[in-house]
Amino acid sequence: MKELILVLAAIVNEVHDVLNQLFGMSMTDKSLHFWVMGIIGILLFLAVYLVIKIIEKMKFSATILSFVFTFTVMTVLVFAIEIQQAITNRGNMEFADAAMGLWGFIVFFAIYALVMGVFYSIYTRIKKRKKAKKTTQVSIEEKREPISNEPAEEPAIYRSRVKKTNKFKK
């Protein structure tokens, strides 16, 4: 973990030197941070915005977005704890510790997703049964003829027979 941070710091220092050479020595450290972090931030925002627009069209968009946000916060928290351990010498600063902490979150989230999936499946099946039962009750009621004081109309076949027999009687 310590080596990873040192490598990242070396990369940042190299980028700092290259940008200073490109734009001249007139750029202060604060102005360099302003431009670099501003550009990185807006590019990251556009990428996240695109991903969120895609996710929001999915069925469980709130759950997906909650997981992504929580995972991001957990990543920052895990690395902050590892850096704190290195600063205070209250533990070993190792990348494996950070990775294991994130795996813990992923496993607990998988258990949560499984339990909620079972509950959701049961809920949707009960809802479908209630809807099917209600639909059959409505269709039975629709098949019943309304009660009225007028005499029911005779079928066409019966009427034609009656007419034929009436013609013969005259």
Rank of each mutant, 00 (worst) to 15 (best):
K131E: 15
V48D: 06
A80R: 07
Q84T: 09
V48I: 06
L65E: 01
M74D: 00
A96E: 15
I5Y: 13
F168V: 15
L22T: 11
K143C: 07
F79I: 10
G91H: 12
K170C: 04
G41F: 06
K127W: 05
F109T: 12
L46G: 07
A110N: 03
T136W: 08
M27I: 15
K164H: 14
M74F: 11
T135H: 14
R129N: 07
F119A: 10
L102E: 03
Y158W: 13
I81D: 11
L50G: 04
R125T: 04
I81S: 09
V118C: 00
L4Q: 08
I42T: 05
I54C: 01
N13G: 09
R159D: 07
D97F: 15
K30N: 13
V48C: 03
K143D: 10
Y49S: 13
L6K: 15
T75C: 07
A86F: 14
I140R: 14
D29C: 06
P151Q: 05
T72D: 02
Q84D: 11
V118M: 01
A62L: 04
T63F: 04
F109A: 10
G117P: 06
S31A: 13
R90W: 00
G38A: 05
L102M: 12
V78C: 05
F60P: 00
F95S: 08
K131F: 15
S26G: 14
R159E: 13
I42C: 01
F23Y: 12
R161M: 15
Y112F: 10
E154P: 10
A86P: 00
N166T: 13
I122V: 14
G91F: 07
N149P: 00
K167A: 12
F119T: 01
Y49L: 14
L44K: 07
A62K: 04
I5M: 14
L46I: 02
R144A: 14
I11R: 03
K167I: 09
L22F: 09
S31H: 13
Y158K: 15
E14W: 11
L8F: 10
K2R: 10
M116I: 01
L114Q: 01
V15P: 01
Y49G: 04
N20I: 03
G24L: 06
P146F: 03
M25K: 14
F105T: 00
S66R: 03
P151A: 02
F119N: 11
K167N: 09
A62M: 04
Q84H: 12
L50N: 06
V162R: 13
M1W: 01
A152K: 14
L65S: 02
L65A: 03
V51A: 05
G117W: 01
Y49R: 08
V73Y: 09
Y112W: 07
I122T: 04
N89M: 11
P155N: 10
L8D: 05
R125L: 07
F108C: 06
H33V: 12
K169W: 14
F108L: 07
A9D: 12
Y49H: 08
R161T: 13
E153Y: 02
K170D: 10
V36M: 02
I11F: 08
P155R: 03
K53H: 07
S121R: 01
S66C: 06
A156N: 07
G104E: 04
